[in-house]
Design a protein around this nucleic acid. Structure first.
Lengths: 370, 370
DNA sequence: GTGAAAGCGCTAACAA
DNA sequence: TTGTTAGCGCTTTCAC
């Protein structure tokens, strides 16, 4: 027993001495190495348990040169999307005997970089990253590739070659949602989109544009607003729509939180969803069914995104040199709830706005332009 | 440059050789040790950067016997409460040069134990744990104490002596909420509480009972339901209330998710909150203001819970032997939203129930008793 | 089936 | 100011 900075820790040697064997024997026994007779192995395991032995991860990994750990970086954890993805990652990792080192960038590129460096210095065997909405400097990823550390981008993918990617069918899903609202008869459609330097922002916009084009409807420029993925951004985005002086009939929001921001803004203005303005979004939350009205949305295979991301990363770790980057796209599904079930006659308040921009209770901050 | 299992990793030695100095010099220089002249230090740092050196956490921590890492275990991350706590932990850790190793137990005692063991084997300098709602075996915590690893319980605290605790004022907050509804004139009050072997379940129940007693109102036994902290449990709990044949005027829910379960159940039965039944709860979610009606609740200092938990843990790490366990209780605040703002005349549907238990649309599953 | 030797990359103590 | 020596606790040859 050794007194460490942290107190008393049992080591292999303690067990070895107690049993008058070498520490190598103990090491092998504990790892189930076939060298050791089942008899001694049992004895060793028993005393290890009795002594409360817990292997020193640092030492083990320093000598074996592998950590059996995967580093994960996500931008947020408060959202259903990521927490479900993480569940998929955890479960799969555990089944494969891997440890997960989870970190959160808070949509902050600087913090993301810190985490990457920490995880690299912990020598994780592989990385799964969903980049922050701010990330624009990709040099660290190139460095990671040079270092030979397997890296899988999940959901949010930077424009780089040579990495594994696991994403939902953003373009297809966005297109399906847009087709749906077009089929309802809506033509005045706005898109609260993500920044175009983000993969999901770009792909979802493309899906939207695909459908619009296919129906021969021109996209009104000031009804396309690009921004971040948070509720605050959705609120801000709707305000910008409002300031165009003309409200669309329906909004397609790039994420669930963005749609929430719209809800809040709409409510503050004294308007009603879906009667005054309708809405549909990409992604979901566990609380959707409690909102009134509940939102129709594009469902993402969250758990599977996590699971597949981990699987690909593991495969990459195992095959190493002779492994070609994999690109996995999982299907999405349109789920209809209370919104966007039929075309609504525009409500009173919205009509008023069209005649006279001042009749609707203005949002906090700047008054509407027109 | 060494080829490791993971690829190429630059070591201290690489830098040392390149500069014709010893690796000790490099090590010291990189850590800003005053031994080294600023001239050589600069040179060393420059080549380290050029070579893309990243210190090996394992090796560093193995020899220094400290990891500068805090292990954190929370039961859930999908909830506003924990994700905000985690933010507090992260920020404070970063300010103090500490790493956070975050894990999630999913309210599962077994998984919690796995995580504890992993973190211990990573030799974290300290632990912050919010125990799962299932945890009933506390032996591991005693073992941790024997090992001398500083441990702080946050929010959910097992009944053990000798550990740091950082909690919200559960009892006081629950009492304040209950006082409030009593002052509105309600007397038929139900409590959807947490299991009594959990600290927050117990304390919140006590606060509730305090207020009831203070107002001289006897607590109807079958209006006290104990369960878990999830939405599903809230749903189930309300069903049990319903089966008593008499619905209370108002429900005090032990957590926000539990209250959500009530919302869902109430809605399914075709009743209305707050007119048919009113509700208030402990804790909040970022989405509360989007629900209709928005819920009045006891606000917890989530970020600060995280911050203080980390601070106490660090202090414990530093003082080690001569450190007495600290117990910190942070104040809560009653926040009034749409529910519980005044006593409502009981709605039609509820009155019907009182005469004839069959008039309200029954919940899925077993039909109501009466 | 078992164990001695060597070393993973780093830091701490001490010498030079 | 710099370098030498000796580990940290473990795993990996490779000899017995």
């Amino acid at each position: 027993m050794k007194k460490t900075r942290t107190g008393f820790q049992v080591t292999l040697n303690d067990i070895a001495k107690k049993l008058h064997v070498s520490k190598v024997t103990v090491s092998k026994a504990l790892r189930g190495h076939p060298d050791i007779s089942s008899e001694t192995a049992e004895k060793i395991k028993a005393t290890a348990r009795a002594l409360g032995y817990s292997p020193n991860f640092m030492a083990r990994n320093l000598s074996s040169r592998r950590t059996n750990a995967i580093g994960v970086i996500v931008p947020k954890i408060a959202h259903h999307f990521f927490s479900s993805v993480i569940e998929g990652i955890y479960d799969t990792a555990f089944q494969n005997g891997y440890e997960v080192l989870l970190t959160v960038s808070q949509e902050n590129a600087e913090r993301e970089l810190q985490h990457i460096n920490s995880l690299l210095s912990m020598r994780v065997d592989g990385l799964i990253i969903s980049v922050s909405e701010q990330t624009r400097d990709y040099s660290i990823f190139k460095k990671i590739k040079e270092m030979g550390v397997p890296l899988t981008f999940m959901d949010r993918v930077p424009p780089l070659e040579g990495f594994n990617t696991v994403v939902a069918d953003d373009r297809g899903g966005a297109r399906a949602a847009t087709e749906h609202i077009l089929n309802l008869g809506y033509t005045k459609i706005a898109h609260l989109g993500g920044h175009q330097y983000t993969s999901i922002g770009r792909e979802r916009w493309r899906g939207f544009a695909d459908a619009m084009k296919h129906h021969g409807i021109t996209v009104r420029k000031d009804w396309i607003v690009y921004g971040g993925f948070s509720e605050a951004e959705g609120y801000k985005g709707f305000k910008m729509l409002y300031e165009t002086g003309k409200l669309p009939e329906v909004v397609f929001a790039v994420t669930f939180p963005v749609a929430l921001g719209v809800y809040r803004a709409v409510r503050e203005m004294g308007m009603k969803i879906p009667d005054d303005i309708d809405i549909i979004c990409f992604g979901n939350s566990g609380m959707n069914h409690l909102m009134s009205p509940s939102m129709s949305y594009v469902d993402q295979p969250t758990y599977d995104l996590g699971r597949r991301a981990l699987e690909v990363t593991l495969e990459n770790i195992q095959k190493k040199g002779n492994f070609l980057p994999q690109h996995i796209t999982l299907p999405t599904k349109l789920v209809l709830c209370d919104t966007c079930t039929k075309k609504r006659a525009r409500g009173k308040s919205t009509r008023l706005l069209l005649k006279n921009g001042r009749r609707i209770k203005p949002l906090l901050g700047k008054a509407p332009k027109s």
